[in-house]
Amino acid sequence: MGLQQNFQTEPVSRLSLRDPVIVSPHQTLRDAIVRMREMKLGCAVAVDDEHKPLGIFTESKLTQLLAQNGSQVVGETIGTHMTQPCPWVELTDPIVYVLDAMQLKNVRFMCVVDAEKRLVGLTGQKGLIEFVADHFPGQVMVQRVGGNPYPAQREGA
């Protein structure tokens, strides 16, 4: 089965999902930044009492806010600055939904929810590229990167 067909038939649950940084909309951006640093993740997801995603706060939004407002912004609440609605897919949706969202909506992260719309994970650009690499390890995972394109010294005798 080709990769294109896999994209159309395999569910999102086959992607390597990340554990999201979960925050409350009442917490400050500082709290979210500390957690995002700890988990080495570029976004935090605000959820309600039922664990349903309310909005997402990303590192690119953080850059925008710092450029506009300076350091004071980190004391403000996530609820004020999170992006709503949060882009999401269900675990059972085909992976091509994620690919389309990356291309058409220019989003980097997508929340993954179960049938009750509760947050269960996070996926995004890296997850998609890792999925492609898993299909073609003979092409992707064997590449030399960052080396010199030609030898500095003549080879051979």
């Binding site: 650009q125 590229i129 492609v132 992707v140 590449q143 394109p149």
Partner: peptide, 23 residues
């Protein structure tokens, strides 16, 4: 940073993300 040359195979660009972790 990890980089690629323009003459590298296109798969090399995916390798940097999939194996090295840089977007």
């Amino acid at each position: 940073p990890v980089y690629v040359y323009e003459t590298d195979s296109s798969a090399a660009a995916l390798t940097v993300t999939a194996a090295c972790g840089f977007r």
